[in-house]
Amino acid sequence: MDSPHGAAVKAEDFGLKGPRGWAFRGVGIDARPGSLIAVEGPSGSGRTCLLLALTGRMKPTSGHAEVGGHRLPKRMAAVRRIAALGPVCGVNELDQALTVAEQLREGALLQRRYEAPLRALLRPRGERRASSRARIEAALDAAGLDLATLPKGPRTSVRDLERLEAVRLSVAIALLGSPRLLALDDLDMKLSDAERAEAWALLRSVAAEGTTVLAVCSEAPDDALVLRTGPAEPAAGQDTDTDTDTDTENDDDTKGADDALAEAGRA
């Protein structure tokens, strides 16, 4: 029997600490291939850092994780090869100056250049173009993005897309490489309730086809496996009164996440 396409995601006491505090810590999960995983928490709580760490883009400092059989932090490069990352501010973003067609062609070109075997690169140009068109059409279909419905069709500028359309385009570009793990940041940002429901329905369909999905959000759906980020819970019997030390620690957690994201942007 063939092994599942999606990547299993496991973590135990997973954490990342920067110069000014923890970005996240104590994370644990055991998700099967094809799972829908939501990283839930308020902005600044380290949720994007957790996304980047689980996709091999940031090096954790405590505990361990395993993605598709590749152990982190030892095999970060191997995890990056099987995990497709959607837009992350300052790290990996859609190019607002391109049209939708240009963004898709650029994505297909990068996939062919960096992931295809040498013999594929030596195929006749017409055959390569036909293959790219087929991959783009399949990815658009999976992402539910019909270019004919856009204001200027495929010549629509990326900057003119509605937020949900940009999400669908990001998913399509990520799926061009047939990833085992699809990771998206700020999924529900600037979406109405109806649009949020559509976005989660899209990710459910991707997961149903076997690809593991990891999405950062402010509010997770009931059917997702949830990783929550934010200030650590107090231990049993610990005084829960708010005091100066606690406020400083929580502020350091936020600063730690900001530091880690800034470092990822420079990488």
Results as ranks from 00 to 15, higher is better:
101 A>Q: 06
150 L>Y: 11
22 W>K: 02
82 I>N: 10
264 A>W: 00
57 R>M: 13
8 A>G: 14
260 A>D: 02
263 E>K: 07
146 D>K: 03
54 L>W: 09
239 D>T: 11
5 H>N: 02
34 G>C: 14
127 E>F: 06
152 K>M: 14
107 G>D: 11
90 G>R: 09
252 D>C: 07
132 S>N: 09
75 R>G: 07
98 L>Q: 12
77 A>H: 09
248 T>M: 11
76 M>Q: 15
164 L>K: 02
79 V>T: 11
205 S>P: 03
25 R>V: 03
249 E>F: 01
140 L>C: 02
241 D>G: 10
186 D>Q: 05
30 D>C: 05
124 P>G: 13
72 L>H: 08
208 A>H: 13
263 E>L: 12
18 G>I: 08
91 V>D: 07
206 V>L: 12
227 L>A: 02
138 A>S: 08
155 R>N: 14
137 E>T: 06
192 S>N: 01
58 M>F: 06
221 P>I: 05
177 G>F: 04
39 V>R: 04
151 P>E: 12
68 G>M: 11
164 L>E: 02
196 R>W: 01
127 E>R: 10
140 L>G: 04
215 A>K: 04
18 G>K: 05
216 V>P: 05
95 D>S: 11
49 C>V: 15
169 L>I: 01
159 R>F: 11
41 G>T: 00
249 E>M: 01
201 A>R: 15
127 E>G: 05
226 V>N: 09
213 V>L: 13
27 V>P: 06
90 G>V: 12
154 P>T: 02
241 D>Y: 03
173 I>H: 04
170 S>P: 01
129 R>S: 07
199 A>Y: 07
23 A>Y: 03
